[in-house]
Design a protein around this nucleic acid. Structure first.
Lengths: 122, 122
DNA sequence: TTGACGCATTCCGTTATCGGCATACGATTG
DNA sequence: CAATCGTATGCCGATAACGGAATGCGTCAA
């Protein structure tokens, strides 16, 4: 309904592959920026920018340690994403996707056999 | 490491609130485009465009029924998202986030008590 | 205090994204 | 056949996102 403030949303923050990778790294323990730069092989400003986005949605938090800033993961906002997808878990677990495949093939068969229209009603 | 083909990725497709809403609707059953237009209150072209993105990542599939195109959900690509977030589930369940909060406050307290710099060592 | 270090921020150019509008196109109806 | 319905696509303008390079700023060492 409402426009989404693009960047202030965990879904959006996580849509960036580098940001997911940063989260994956921080999941194994807190790290200063320089560490991330080295591991990821990105330029330092880009890493800082990604961290900024992650900070804005509260997916990471920072602590100053001398002249370095140590980031750590805050998994809480991921719960929202998890809850959303979890609602679909049932669907693929119960092989409804397989049923879809079968339906697809059935319809192909039928249309070559007898041109049978299917009506849908909701 | 590699650049992400922005739109050909389930994470990205799902980052759009309208697209999530479309998926939520289709989770309750297949629907023709016109239905979605009415329910969502969006202009028809926008709905078609969002459906196109969802189709490109195989989150929805279409079936022609006369002059209308009936869309249905294909939950399979969501599994990738689910698997990724599920890896973090342990983290918020075990109240590690709560521990973070406590740590934050401890550091605040210390710095107001005696202007004590906190040293951290890794 | 000066200089180096660690990180954040800014500016720039490019590309992607999104909504709005018009239009094209196949299927149906008359 | 022409007119209409249901959808998809193309074009436009505005805005956001991203990488790169330069720079700002606080902290530490000499």
């Amino acid at each position: 309904m409402a426009r989404a403030a693009t960047t202030s949303d965990a879904f959006n923050a996580v849509a960036e592959p580098w940001r997911r990778e940063i989260l994956d790294l921080l999941a194994r323990g807190e790290r200063p920026v320089g560490d991330l730069v080295r591991v990821l092989g990105l330029a330092q400003p880009q890493v800082s920018k990604h961290l900024r986005v992650l900070r804005e949605v509260d997916l990471v938090r920072a602590r100053d340690n001398g002249r370095q800033r140590v980031y750590r993961l805050n998994p809480a906002p991921l719960k929202g994403i998890h809850d959303w997808v979890a609602g679909y878990e049932r669907l693929w677990n119960e092989r409804f996707d397989l049923m879809d495949e079968v339906l697809d093939e059935l319809m192909l068969d039928e249309s070559t056999e007898g041109e049978n229209g299917n009506d849908v009603d909701d």
